[in-house]
Every structure is written in C-alpha cells, then in structure tokens.
Nucleic acid binder design. Structure first.
Length: 764
DNA sequence: GATTTAGATATTTTT
DNA sequence: TATCTAAATC
C-alpha cells in the first residue's frame, strides 16, 4: 500500500462545507487529537460526522481503510456509510472499518480467534441461545429455576460483560444476590460451555477483542498503525467494555473524535455509562470540546420546553439549545399543549381527533407520531385509529429474526453449516414433532456433557444401544438421516435457496403451518417466504448466516402515509412535525420501575427520555395525562408527571378537559376529589394547580361523527348484517358470520379463520 | 410424549 | 388484559 497523500494545509477542506455553521465547521476541521463534539438534538450531528469522515479521506489525511468509524446500530452504520460515500464517491469502497462495535469486533476476532482459544469459524449466539444455555447451567447447578430464572442469570452475565468483568473479577457482593452466591460459578460454567461450543455471545465479541489487545501488544500495535482516525457516534451510550475498547485503540494516534449528547443517554439499563461522556476531558488529556447548540429542527416553545425540563438534571455537561433554523422568531409557533383527561380512552380519542384535524388541514398522517413510554400504551391508540380508519404503523415490536419460525428455519441452516451446533440441534430436533421429548433430550445432553462431543456426533452412537427406544428412537433416526441427506445435497451443489425450500418442505415444517388454521399460521408462512427472499440476496449460506448473526435486522420498512406509533426509546434520532407525548403520569412516566431500581439516576434518565421525546417535534408537541389509568386490566388513579411541572409556563398551553376532581380507585373503592387525592399522596405542585385552575372545558370530538365505523359492544349490531363484507386493519377483509350478543364474529379471507372481534371494524 | 389447563407475571431494546 | 410456564391429564 502506498503512503497517503500529503496532508493539506489546516483549514482547507476537500469537501464542500456550504450550509454549515462555524461550530460545525470547527468540528469537521479539527482532525488531530481527542475531540468531543457535544451535539444537542437537531443540531446536524450526522452531517458533521459524515462530512468529517469524508473530509479526512478527501484531504488525503488517510485512506478509507485507515479510518475507524463506530456506531451502535446497524441502521446508523448503514446511513453513515451511504452519506459518506455520497461525499467521497467510489474512493470510499474501502470503508470496511465502518460498523457497529460488535461487527468490527467480530471482524477483528475472526482474524485472531485462536488468541482467545476460539476457532475462526466461531458462531455468535443471540439472546435466545444465551438464555437456553443459562437454563442448562441452572439445571446442572441444581438451582431452583423458579426462584432464579435463566433470564435473570443471562441478564446478570450480560451486565458483567457490559462492565468488562470476567468471572474472576466479579465483585463478590455482586454475585451474592443470585442463588446464594452461585452466580460466579454459573458464569464460569457458562464461559466454559461457550468455549466448547466454539461460540461467543455479543458481550464476548468486545471482551475477547479487549483481551487480545491487552495480551498481544504486537496485534494492538498493528491496529494502532492501521487506524489513523477514530470516529465514534452516540458516545453517551457506550458501556465500560466499549470504553476500554476505544481507549486501547485510541492510544495509537490519539485522533479520536466522539460525538454524543449527554442529555440523550437513555440506555443506562442496558449498561450505558453517562459517566463516559462526562469524564471525556479527563480521560483524554488535551481533549477539545465543541458544542453544537444551534437547533435546526424545532420551534421556540418546543426547545424552551425541552431545555427547561432537562435543566433539572444535575449530572450533565450543560448545553443551551437555541433556534437556529427556519423557525427563528416565528410568531405563529404553537405553544406546547398539555391536556389532562379522564382516562386512557379519552386520551386516545383526543389524540386521534387531533390527528384527523391535522389531516383535514391538508397535512399528512406520516407527519404525526405518538411516542409512548412502554409498549402496552400503544394498544388504545391502535384501537382508536382503526376505528377512525386512519392508517398507522407500529414501529418496534418483535423483530423478524427473533420470531420462532424464523429461528427454527435458521437452526436447520446452522446445522447444515456445522453439525456441531448443539443449540441449533436442540432447537429443531423436535420441531416439527418427532417424538423426541424433554426426557430424551435431557438424556442426550447428559451424554454430550460427559463425552464433550457434539450431539450430532453422539446420537448415532447412542442409537446403536438400547438407551433410547420407541418413537424417540425412530424420530431421532429420521432426524439424523434427514440432516445428512440435506448436507450431502448441499455439498453436491444444491443452491442455498433451494436448500431452505427443501428443508422446510421435507421436514414437514410447512405442512404443519398449512394445517394450522390459527391466525398466526399464515403470517408465519409469509415470514418464511420472506426469509427465502432474504437468503436469495446472498451468494452463499455461510455469508447469509454470518451476516444475520450480527445484523438481526431486516431491511428497513418503507414509510408510507401512516401515523407512526413507537416508544420514546425507538424515537431517538427521528423527527416529525407533530408529536404526541401521552401518558405523562407519575409511575408511568417517569416509570416506577426505573425509580425503584435506580433512584435518582433512574429519574434523571427518565428526564432525558422526556427531553428526547420533546425534541423529536418540529412544529408541535402535545403532552397529555389522565386521572385514571388502566394498567394490566386494573384501574389506578394516577397523578400528572413531575415533568409537567418542569415545563416553562410561558411556552405552555395547559388545560384540563375533565377536571381533577374525578378520581376512581377500583381497589379501594375510592371516589372523590383531587384534594383528597392530594392529601393522600402529598401531591401538590405549581403545575398541578395551574392546570386545575383551567379545569373546565369538556372534550369534543366532532370528527367522529359521520364515520362509518362501529364498535359492536357500544352500538349493538345495527350497522352490520350477516354476510356483510367488512375490513379490519389487522386481519384484512372478511364476512360477518355471527352478530349475536355484544361481539361480532367475522370470517377473514386471508387468514382463513373465524375471529370474534371486540375492536372496531369498518363495513365496506 | 403430547395436550390441556391453571397460574403467575407484567418497561424501555441493540448487538 | 395477554402471554408465557409449569403441573395435570390424556
């Protein structure tokens, strides 16, 4: 490789810098030495990051392959790569060190696996495999799995790995809380099992890489020479392991640029340490800090609201966002609306009416988003939107590669790739049913543990004996034969796409789903078709599998003309003109669990979540809270969130449509005035009083009228006749087959099933 | 070993 | 309310 071209003079950039403000330019041009870019919400962070990367390359400071760019999500990595390539053109083909912490670690680890006792072909376990491994360990250690769940153990191990703690370094008091101190031996056992399986979990990808760097100065020195510039996105979300990883690499040139926002650190429960960003200047001596505070996204009231709330946090570096874009000095900017309602139904009604009114002004549904704290809050909005016939999209939820049917299909493929993959073997040996139950499987596992060889190798030997009999023996024999058959077909040149198809058909998996008349079966079949399509895009099975292990993500869904419903966490990095922030009640938001588990730290994180939520809005933010909330089927009287009190009164239009003297308490039969409630819970605050003074106007929903939409339970079935064709947003078209009682029975065409509908449905 | 039923249990989510 | 797990029964 030739040496990089001579660096250009400082200040001279090779990439167009039009439309960038002075702080942004400074962040782009300060290429040498440690740099922290504190980028507030909506201040053009991604643009700075991509332009900076492009500039380093275009100015000849480094070849693309000499830059390391780290993100947290695959989505961010994809976006960054695209935007950087736009700026630097085909030169950037070599941006092969742009990726997530995990994908880059995996690349490094594949090259140096033997240094930590792994083969380069190691597999990467996902959460599901991890939990099943933990289950086996808990059984082996004779721990009561009811009291100490595998999930619990997996979470503990994950937590330690986030903090870069190997089994010998776990503080004893940390381990005491699990199964009378057996936690550490479980962890040790877990790591031993992983080594036998030639596998890694996500945490190991980072930890092994750190170990390699620490124990092999030559390898580290190699990477120091290689990576001339390091860029890190979302630095506030790094955990201890990621921090150590970065420190080791940054010791080379010292050219490390971290971009982040301490006010947007919302993943503490997942191991992120806000402290990393707070400590940056002392961690990297001589570090420069540049603040991006000019916000191009939101109106004055929205920024004022967000800034005011976040100012109540103590652990932060401090920034002051100001309106820097088209919104500057806009006299028509809407104040942040705060509305109090009787219950969740009324709240959903108000929000959806607002959305209709927005659309009636000629604006698009896709410009609206409803951001909730927890996913259970989504349902009532969905129901209401279905009723009004407004298209919507729920973002998040169970991901494609985590669905059972996809994981089953993947397990078959993993077995074809490597018969030693015991976890895959266990998953599908009885899927579809082959008469191999828990007892048989346990017996097999016992053998495998004693022998140290894989299940697939041992089972044929066991079958020679009389250890397993009857249906289990027949099932196992067939299973082994089938796998061998598929493997030889594949070895003899059967294409990987055909292979999946063959496996699904010959194993009886497709049959099983086709016979199943449940509503999910059709979706599952569709998902499997989707999987076949996905595999088609790769040129080999191995390529597909190793990609999927790291990128548990299917290409982003297209966003059409739909209202978006998502969690506050899912909203980070996104923006909409109109944002609804419902459920601002104590115990819901801030979430009670968060406060219970992490106290003041938890509260500050919840507050950052409020900040993230508010700053997603471009033109209008609408907060709401209720007096009575149904949580898991139980009614609870709730109080407005303390964050409402932290809003700046002059930028807020607060109003309660229901009055606060309306409190029901199902458990205690309490029904009374807010004064009583205040007395009960010591709740009294300026914000609350301010809202209470305005508590007069009733809620109105004019938009509802004239909609050809009915709820069976509310209206009876006057709107429906037997045989009537109807449309349901989730299940599609169908015919009414029974309309007695309070519910409506509908046979849906696509799913081929009958379903009792208690939510809204539209006659067509 | 498979199926059914009763009971407990309940954030946020990425790799 | 909905979902997942473990015991109880087939």
């Amino acid at each position: 490789m030739a040496a990089p071209r001579a660096p250009r003079a400082a200040g001279q950039t090779a990439v167009p810098m039009t439309g960038l403000n002075p702080e942004q330019c400074e962040a782009i041009e300060t290429t040498e030495g440690p740099l922290l870019v504190l980028a507030g919400a909506g201040t053009g962070k991604t643009q700075v990051l991509t332009t900076r990367l492009a500039n380093i390359i275009a100015s000849g400071r480094a070849y693309p392959s000499q830059t390391l760019t780290v993100t947290f999500t695959n989505k961010a990595a994809r976006e960054m790569r695209e935007r950087a390539l736009e700026l630097i053109g085909p030169d950037g083909e070599g941006l092969r060190w742009l990726g997530t912490f995990h994908s880059i670690s995996a690349q490094i680890l594949r090259r140096h696996a033997e240094l930590v006792g792994l083969k380069p072909s190691f597999t990467i376990l996902d959460t599901d495999d991890q939990i099943r491994l933990c289950k086996q360990i808990i059984e082996a250690e004779n721990i009561d799995p009811k009291r100490w769940t595998p999930r619990h153990l997996a979470a503990l191990i994950d937590g330690w790995k986030n903090r870069a703690l190997s089994p010998d370094k776990v503080p004893t008091e940390d381990a005491h809380n699990f199964a009378d101190g057996k936690a550490i031996s479980c962890y040790t056992l877990y790591q031993a099992r992983l080594k036998i399986l030639n596998a890694c979990d996500f945490g190991d990808l980072l930890l092994h890489t750190i170990t390699i760097f620490q124990n092999n100065t030559d390898v580290l020195a190699d990477f120091h020479r290689k990576f001339r510039y390091i860029l890190v996105d979302e630095y506030q979300d790094t955990n201890v392991a990621q921090y150590l990883w970065l420190r080791l690499l940054a010791k080379g040139t010292g050219n490390i640029c971290c971009v982040g926002d301490d006010d947007q650190s919302i993943y503490g429960w997942r191991g992120a340490e806000v402290d990393n960003i707070l400590r940056f200047e002392s961690d990297f001596p001589g570090a420069k800090v540049i603040r991006l505070e000019r916000n191009y996204r939101s109106t004055e009231p929205i920024l004022a609201a967000a800034s005011s709330v976040i100012s109540y946090n103590r652990s932060r570096l401090g920034k002051t966002l100001f309106v820097g874009g088209d919104w500057a000095g806009d006299p028509d900017a809407e104040k942040v609306k705060v509305r109090g309602l009787w219950d969740g139904d009324a709240e959903a009604r108000m929000v959806c009416d607002d959305i209709e009114a927005w659309a009636a002004k000629g604006r698009s549904y896709a410009e609206c988003a409803i951001l909730v704290r927890a996913s259970w809050q989504m349902r009532q909005f969905e129901e209401r939107l279905i009723m009004l016939g407004i298209p919507y999209q729920v973002i998040g939820g169970p991901r494609f590669f985590e669905r059972a049917e996809i994981r089953d299909a993947m397990a078959y493929l993993r077995l074809i790739r490597s018969t030693d993959d015991d976890l895959a073997f266990e998953r599908v040996v009885n899927q579809p049913k082959r008469g191999v139950g828990a007892t048989t499987l346990q017996k097999l596992q016992q053998y495998a543990r004693d022998d140290g060889r894989s299940l697939f190798t041992l089972v044929p030997m066991i079958l020679q004996t009389d250890e397993v009999k009857g249906p289990a023996k027949r099932g196992l024999t067939r299973f082994i034969d089938q796998i061998n058959h598929w493997r030889s077909q594949y070895a003899n040149g059967l294409g990987h796409v055909e292979l999946v198809q063959t496996i699904l058909d010959e194993s009886g998996y497709t049959d099983l789903l086709q016979k199943d008349r449940s509503p999910q079966a059709q979706t599952r079949l569709d998902n499997l078709k989707e999987l076949v399509n996905a595999i088609d895009e790769f040129d080999s099975l191995e390529g597909f599998l190793s990609h999927v292990e790291l990128v548990m993500d299917v290409s982003t869904q297209s966003v059409g003309e739909e209202v978006q419903i998502l969690t506050l966490h899912g909203a980070k990095g996104l923006e909409w003109p109109l944002v609804f922030l419902p459920g601002w009640e104590e115990e819901v938001f801030p979430s009670r669990r968060s406060l219970d588990e992490s106290g003041k730290k938890g509260l500050e994180e919840e507050r950052r979540l409020a900040y993230v939520g508010l700053t997603r809005a471009r033109e209008a933010a609408r907060i709401s809270f209720v007096a009575n909330r149904q949580i898991f089927g139980r009614w609870q009287s709730v109080l407005p969130s303390r964050f409402i009190d932290e809003l700046p009164p002059e930028h807020v239009d607060a109003q309660s449509d229901t009055g606060y003297n309306s409190v029901i308490d199902q458990d205690n039969g309490f029904q009374g005035d807010i004064e009583d409630l205040g007395a009960r819970s010591d709740y009294s605050s300026p914000g609350w009083r301010r809202l209470k003074e305005n508590a007069s106007q009733p809620v109105s929903s004019p938009i509802l009228e004239g909609k050809a939409v009915l709820l069976a339970a509310e209206t009876g079935h006057s709107g429906f006749k037997l045989g009537q064709r109807v449309f349901h947003q989730k299940f599609g078209y169908g015919k009414v087959v029974d309309a007695n009682g309070t519910k409506l029975s509908v046979a849906f065409e696509k799913a081929g099933i009958k379903k009792v509908i208690s939510t809204f449905i539209k006659p067509v």
